[in-house]
Each structure stands twice: as C-alpha cells, then as structure tokens.
C-alpha cells in the first residue's frame, strides 16, 4: 500500500486491455493474489480429485464499499466460500471479476485486494483467475465484484434445503442482523451511532467443526440478504415442514436491538454475512453446539427452534407472553417504521 500514490486513480485506460491493464493487474492483483495456480494464461489449469465438486457464483455490490468489520473484498470471498461450505464442500479455488468505476482510488483497490487475499488464506482457498473492467464515471457504484468458486465435497455429508425433517433442531451460529445493521449505520441516513461491526467471516472452519462433530446434518444455509427469517421461510418451503421458533432464544446483540427499536425493524430480517442456519436431528444438536461454541465465529451459537410436521411452509414464533404468532413473511425493501 505504501508504494501506491494516493493521487492515483483507476482510469478507462486501465480497462482497455493494453499496457496499463497489465500494469494494474501486476501492481494490484498479482501482487496480492500470487500463488502457483494464478498464471498469466487464459485459464487456470487445476488438478481434479476423485469425488464431486461444488460450484457456485455470486455478485457483490455494497454501499458503502468499506464498513466496520470488512469491505467489499472480504465480503466477496466470504460469500462464495460460505456458499460452498454450506454444501459441506471444502473451498479450493476462486475466480474474481471486477467492475471498477472510473476514478476509483488505486489505494482503495489495493486495500480491497489485500482483504481478499487475507480472507482467502484464512478460508484455505486459492484465487486462480480474474478479470478487470473499468466502467465510466457513474455507471457503477465504486466497485462491483463477482466471485466464482469450486470446492471438494466431504465424503458422507449431504446437505440441502429440502432435507429438514420434523424433529430437527434449528441452530443459528451467532447473533443475527449484524451485517445489515452495520451497513444501515454506515450509510448514516438516520444519524444513529452504535458500536456494531459486521459479522462478515469465512465459515469453512465453522462448517468443518460441525461435520467433524456429526455427519448427520440435514441443512446448512448461510443467512445473507433477507437475514435468518428469510432462510427459515426458504427451508420451510423447500422441505415442506413447519418451523417453531422461540423468540427469546434468538441471539441479538443489544445494540442491534436498540437500532431496530429506533427504526421499527425486525432483526431476523436484517442481513448477516457470517451466520449459518443449521438443521440437524435433536440428538445431534448438543454435540454440534459444543463444537460451534469453541469456534471463533460461532461462540454465541444457539438452538432457536425446532422443525414440526404441522403448518408446513410457515414459521411460528412462541412470543414473550407464551402465545404463538406467525413470523411475518419476508418481502420487499426494509423500510423504517416511524409514524
């Protein structure tokens, strides 16, 4: 970062495919992503082990592009790594494609690349291919990143959103709504301050610790946009089961609750970027929970409910007065409720 002049900006020439493109790749991407599989050739050539691979892609736009607890670079690695991990796949290789707005500071691009490298290392994944395009001023919001990843499926682990069964415990790996709350505060539209950082984290280690504790896990899904509430409705729908939640058991940081109280928002519908929702037989839940609580990103893991055969497709909460109420269906733009 020190060698980068703070007056340098990405220009359209950086995206034209000529000498300046090569310079940008050398100075920013090669400098950070360097590994034996990241070559100058048209495609990475990689060994294939026996067994199956998991394969996924995701595009990332976030405003602001840096926020407490991370930036778009870290987010773009975590998102794809976590999608692979949810299938029980060890993340192996990633590609990344950048669309950068003309005038974006090179120093910021370097910070993003550095965060990607650090997160990829932690997740044990190699960045092996990339692409850079530059769009005119105003055509993109600073920088967009798309990452694609492949992972090696773990023997004996098969998870799917359709596998939840009555009798399963529903586990969430940490307090909910942090990322969404962090972004909301970082945009500073409502002039609220709170000490909240994004939960953005690569979760292959978290998944690994669970599958080492039990192979009998039915569903693992990362709660991203739409939060944990949206995931619960997706699973209830895919598995044709009902879900019962105990509202008092859903972990929410006090600050997140405070912000939600101010704006009339439901924490279960705020985005997470480092939280998994896990469905496993109740008999397996204690071992899974014990393993999770030892991990760096899942110390506050909790059982928040159970799967039932009743009311398929619906998520029902036991409320603080001991009555039952439907969790509202996810939908639409999150709008603060004031008046």
């Amino acid at each position: 970062m020190d060698n980068m002049n703070s007056n340098e900006f990405v220009t359209l020439a950086h995206g034209a495919g000529g000498r300046q493109t090569a310079e940008l790749i050398d100075r920013v991407f090669k400098a950070h992503f360097s590994n034996p599989d990241f070559t100058g050739d048209d495609a990475a050539v990689l060994p294939v082990d026996a067994g199956k691979i998991a394969f996924t892609t995701d595009g990332f736009i976030v405003s602001p592009f840096e926020f407490p607890g991370g930036n778009i670079g870290k987010l773009s690695i975590c998102g794809t790594v976590n999608d692979l991990a949810c299938m029980g796949a060890k993340p192996l290789y990633l590609s990344c494609a950048f669309v950068i707005e003309e005038g974006f500071p090179l120093a910021k691009l370097e910070e993003i690349a550095a965060a990607m490298k650090k997160t990829a290392d932690e997740a044990g994944v190699r960045i092996v291919a990339g692409d850079t395009k530059v769009a005119g001023k105003g055509q993109v919001d600073h920088v967009f990143i798309t990452t694609t990843g492949v992972g090696q499926l773990t023997e004996g682990v098969r998870t799917s959103g359709a596998f939840a069964r009555p009798g399963d415990a529903v586990i969430v790996t940490g307090d909910v709504g942090r990322h969404g709350c962090t972004i909301l505060l970082a945009r500073n539209e409502f002039e609220i301050d709170a000490d909240v950082t994004s939960d953005c984290a690569p979760l292959w280690g978290t998944v690994k610790s669970m599958i080492d504790a039990s192979r009998d896990i039915h569903v693992i899904r990362d709660a991203t946009r739409g939060g944990v509430g949206t995931v619960l409705y997706e699973i209830a729908d895919q598995s044709k089961v009902g879900i019962r939640l105990n509202s008092a058991d859903v972990p929410v940081a006090p600050e997140v609750r405070g912000v939600c109280g101010m704006l009339g928002l439901e924490p279960l519908y705020l985005a997470c970027e480092g939280r998994l929702v896990v469905f496993a037989p109740k008999s397996e839940a204690p071992a899974i929970l014990e393993a999770l609580r030892k991990g760096p990103y899942s110390a506050s893991a909790a059982i928040i409910g159970e799967v039932v055969a009743d009311h398929p497709g619906k998520v029902v909460m036991t409320t603080e007065i001991g009555a039952q109420s439907l969790l509202p269906q996810p939908g639409g733009e999150l709008l603060p409720r004031i008046c």
């Binding site: 409502f190 002039e191 609220i192 301050d193 709170a194 000490d195 006090p254 600050e255 609750r257 405070g258 912000v259 109280g261 101010m262």
Partner: peptide
C-alpha cells in the same frame, strides 16, 4: 440518548 447502545441526538 442511548437505547441499548444505539445512540442518537
């Protein structure tokens, strides 16, 4: 004011 750590003027 402070509501569970959420602060605002």
């Amino acid at each position: 004011i402070d509501a569970s750590g959420a602060k605002r003027r």
